Simulated assay, not measured.
Amino acid sequence: MRAFKYLLLINSLCMAALMSFVAVVGPLVRTLGLAEWHGGLAVTIAGTLWVASSRGWGRLSDVHGRKRVLSWALLGFCSSFTVLAAYFDVVTRISLPLIGLLALLIAIRGVMGLFYAAIPVVSNAWLADNFPTDVRRAVLAKLGAANAVGMVIGPLAAGLLATHNLNLPLYFAAGLPLLAGYLLWRHVPASAVVEQGEKPTLAFADRRVRLPVAAMFLATSAVLAGQMCVGFFAMDRLALDAQAGAKVAGLAMAGVGVALILIQLVVARLHRVSPQAMIGFGSLLAAAGFAPLFLTTTPLGLIASYSVAAAGLGMVFPAAQALAANAAAAGEQGLAAGTLSAAQGAASVVSPLAFTVLYQWNWVLPYLLACALLCVLSLLAMSQTRRIKVASA
């Protein structure tokens, strides 16, 4: 399907834009004289809005159509990103009170996160609309691989542009959703809106989506444990200075992106493995990837451990998304996708602070907790697999 290829490109462009901001936010925050936690607060507020809006975006796309709502989201994401780039450009030239700098940063970054939240939700719902249940996991895995490409390309481009000007990556990134919007308008046809009967009541606790919601929350928490602690680990456990630590941390995250691309292309071909079994095995593999960090003392060991963990997590996410999509009715696909996205957003609100506090107590604790969460997820998935086998016997 030609439109599917363009939808993959749209998601890759938007992820690249988002990750471009992540790559330069630290230096920009330092340039403005803000503290590190100020940047973290802005991300937390954006995560809170992500949680609050995900199900609403999904519901809107169920009622008004996927293309229309995705167009709104891309326009809002592009506009808010442009405002964010202009904000950094202006405040580096003029003097503003600290409270004003912080309030503006939180407000603009929050709105940007609010609009971005719709993009994966509506894209997942569009895929569920246009592909039958037996191939949904494959197409969702390809969508994950497209996002992983953006995760690799975005920081790389931002790093190169930042050598000329710190604000340049933000203006570049603001143009990516604009390009994505053009591709959506030109190459993705509008789909028919599903006639709504009674208002869908799909909730977080709905039996149909309990395992996918748990998978998205627990797996995203493990991802954030790795992201939040990798730089500290490189400096503290590998005895590197800040510059060398940042370089090794960047290589580790690049390894994560490559591993995600490769594993999700493999997952797209594993049609006979059930989503429950994929979640169970993938979470165990991710835990096995984090476990060697307790003994690792070399950069290569860090990169290898993160890559193995990413491979496992790359199996969990598309399987969970496919499981929820297959369980939801036609008029609930947007709501189902929004529910899973909200679970991810909830993890992004709770986990960064929790894991960094644990790291301050003892560097082992965040990785130990990540391993424990993944083992719990594996047990939940295996338990559901067992129940299905007993019921079908």
Rank of each mutant, 00 (worst) to 15 (best):
100 G>K: 05
269 R>K: 12
84 L>K: 07
368 L>K: 02
69 V>R: 09
322 A>K: 05
49 L>A: 11
181 G>I: 07
63 V>D: 08
252 A>I: 09
119 I>P: 01
282 G>N: 11
64 H>G: 10
208 R>L: 02
355 F>M: 15
101 L>V: 08
272 R>N: 13
91 V>M: 06
243 Q>I: 14
204 F>M: 15
333 Q>K: 15
329 A>N: 07
141 A>N: 08
217 F>G: 00
339 T>Q: 03
292 P>Q: 04
133 T>G: 10
346 A>Y: 05
40 G>Y: 00
300 L>M: 11
367 Y>V: 07
265 L>M: 15
263 I>Y: 01
187 H>R: 14
313 L>Y: 02
369 L>S: 13
20 S>I: 12
258 V>T: 14
212 P>R: 09
195 E>Y: 01
232 F>P: 01
312 G>T: 13
131 F>A: 12
104 L>S: 12
174 A>D: 06
174 A>F: 03
108 I>A: 10
279 I>T: 14
66 R>N: 06
173 A>Y: 07
254 A>L: 15
190 A>P: 00
216 M>Q: 13
126 W>C: 12
71 S>M: 13
276 Q>E: 15
152 V>D: 02
211 L>C: 04
65 G>I: 13
137 R>L: 02
141 A>W: 00
336 A>R: 09
85 A>K: 03
13 L>S: 11
239 A>L: 13
221 S>T: 11
73 A>I: 05
8 L>K: 02
375 C>S: 13
221 S>V: 06
28 L>I: 08
291 A>Y: 09
228 M>Y: 04
80 S>N: 07
81 F>A: 15
199 K>R: 14
342 A>H: 09
10 I>R: 05
28 L>K: 03
231 G>Q: 09
155 P>Y: 12
367 Y>R: 06
229 C>T: 12
255 G>L: 05
152 V>I: 14
131 F>T: 01
207 R>H: 06
121 V>E: 08
215 A>D: 10
357 V>Q: 14
269 R>L: 05
138 A>T: 04
95 S>I: 07
267 V>Q: 05
80 S>T: 15
259 A>Q: 13
61 S>F: 03
334 G>D: 01
333 Q>V: 02
161 L>E: 06
259 A>E: 08
24 V>K: 10
276 Q>H: 08
388 I>S: 13
270 L>K: 07
49 L>E: 06
